[in-house]
C-alpha cells in the first residue's frame, strides 16, 4: 500500500510537469529518486524531452531569423551574508509556487535539492572571503510541488554598504524570444504586402514535414561521411529527393548555417579530436576528415581553434604528460 502511495505521488508530479509543458514552461524537471522502474524511465524521457524542446526554442532564434533571443531575468534573490532571503522577485514566487511571504526570511538552501545544498554551502564560504566576488554555479531549485528547476545561477556579492550589511545576489537568466520584436516584424511584413512588395514572404517558402525530414537526413549523411567529397548542392539535393533551393533555405532554417559551413565545422571538430587524442600524422588526419590540401587544412584549422594543427598536437602532448 505504501509503495502505491509513493508512486501515485510521482504520477501526480508527472501530471504537473506535463501541464507546465503544455503551458509553455519547459524549465521544470522531475526528480527520479532511486527507482529503476517504468515510471522512472518515463520521468527520464520527459526530462530529456523538455531539454530538447527548451533547446530548440532558443535555437528558433536562428530559424525564423526575425526573432531575437533576449536574456530575461527569471529568478532574483537578494540574500544577507548568512544566505537568508531578504528579497525576491514576483516571478520567482510564481515559478517556485510559493507565496512571497513564505520565501522571505527563509534560508536560501531550503529551496534547493540535496546536492545543490552542499554546493551552495561551499560557495557561501568562498563568498565571505572576498569583498567582491562573481561566480556562476549550477543549482537545482525545488518548487513547492516538488518539481526540479536545474539552472545556472549567477552569484555576486559586493563590499558592505553604509550600514555595514553585505548582500548576495542570486540571479537566473532565461533565454526567451522577445515577443514585441516579433510582433513588430510581422507588422512590417504586412505593410510591405500592401505596397505590392511581398519580397519577404516570397522568399520564404513553407517547409513541409517531408522537406524537414529530407534535410535532416542530409545533415545525417554529412555527419556520416565527413571524409568523402560532398557532391554539388544540386546533386546532393536530388539525392535527398528535394531541390537545391529548398535544401539551401531549409538547412539554414533548421541548423542556422549553410551546408558547406556545417560540413567544414564538423570536419574540423573531428580533426581536432584526432589531433588531440591519436598519433596519426597531420596529413592522415587531414585526408580522413576530407581535406584535400594540407595548407588549406592548417589555415582553416588555425582560424577556428587559434592554433595550427601541429601546434595543437604539441600543446595537448604536453598537457597529457
Amino acid at each position: 500500500m505504501k509503495i502505491e502511495n509513493i508512486r501515485s505521488a510521482d504520477l501526480e508530479k508527472i501530471n504537473k510537469m506535463l501541464l507546465e509543458m503544455a503551458s509553455g514552461n519547459f524549465f521544470y524537471r522531475l526528480d527520479r529518486g532511486n527507482e529503476q522502474d517504468s515510471l522512472a524511465s518515463m520521468s527520464l524521457v520527459l526530462n530529456m524531452l523538455a531539454e530538447e524542446i527548451q533547446e530548440s526554442l532558443i535555437h528558433e532564434g536562428y530559424a525564423t531569423s526575425k526573432g531575437v533571443v533576449k536574456h530575461i531575468i527569471q529568478l532574483c534573490f537578494v540574500l544577507d551574508r548568512n544566505g537568508i532571503v531578504k528579497s525576491v522577485n514576483q516571478n520567482a514566487c510564481s515559478i517556485l509556487s510559493f507565496l512571497h511571504r513564505d520565501l522571505l526570511e527563509k534560508n536560501f538552501d531550503s529551496f534547493l535539492d540535496g546536492p545543490s545544498v552542499k554546493r551552495w554551502a561551499k560557495t557561501l564560504k568562498k563568498l565571505h572571503r572576498n569583498d567582491f566576488y562573481d561566480t556562476t554555479l549550477e543549482l537545482c531549485f525545488m518548487s513547492k510541488e516538488g518539481l526540479l528547476l536545474p539552472n545556472t545561477c549567477h552569484i555576486s556579492t559586493a563590499a558592505a554598504d553604509a550600514k555595514g550589511e553585505k548582500h548576495i545576489w542570486v540571479t537566473v537568466v532565461l533565454y526567451s524570444k522577445d515577443l514585441k520584436e516579433r510582433k513588430r516584424s510581422e507588422k512590417l511584413n504586412r505593410v510591405s504586402h500592401k505596397n505590392g512588395e511581398p519580397q519577404v514572404s516570397k522568399n520564404r517558402p513553407k517547409l513541409s514535414f517531408e522537406d524537414i525530414r529530407k534535410i535532416r537526413e542530409g545533415q545525417n549523411l554529412i555527419l556520416n561521411n565527413l571524409e568523402s567529397d560532398l557532391p554539388s548542392l544540386k546533386e546532393f539535393a536530388h539525392q535527398l529527393g528535394t531541390n537545391e533551393f529548398k535544401l539551401k533555405y531549409g538547412f539554414k532554417q533548421l541548423y542556422g548555417t549553410t551546408v558547406y559551413r556545417f560540413l567544414l565545422k564538423e570536419r574540423l571538430r573531428k580533426a581536432k579530436m584526432l589531433i588531440q587524442h591519436t598519433d596519426f600524422t597531420i596529413k592522415t588526419i587531414a585526408y580522413q576528415t576530407g581535406f584535400k590540401s594540407i595548407p588549406h587544412f592548417s589555415r582553416v584549422f588555425k582560424k577556428k581553434y587559434g592554433h595550427p594543427p601541429s601546434e595543437l598536437r604539441k600543446i595537448s602532448g604536453e598537457s597529457s604528460e
Partner: peptide
C-alpha cells in the same frame, strides 16, 4: 543534453560500432 550531443559526435570517434547492454527500464529508455 549537452553530454548527449558530445557523446554522439566526439564520442563516436574511433569507434567502429557499439553494442549497448541495457536493462528493461531506465537504460532502455535512455
Amino acid at each position: 543534453k549537452s553530454a548527449r550531443d558530445y557523446l554522439a559526435i566526439e564520442g563516436s570517434i574511433l569507434v567502429k560500432s557499439v553494442a549497448y547492454i541495457i536493462e528493461t527500464n531506465v537504460s532502455k529508455a535512455l
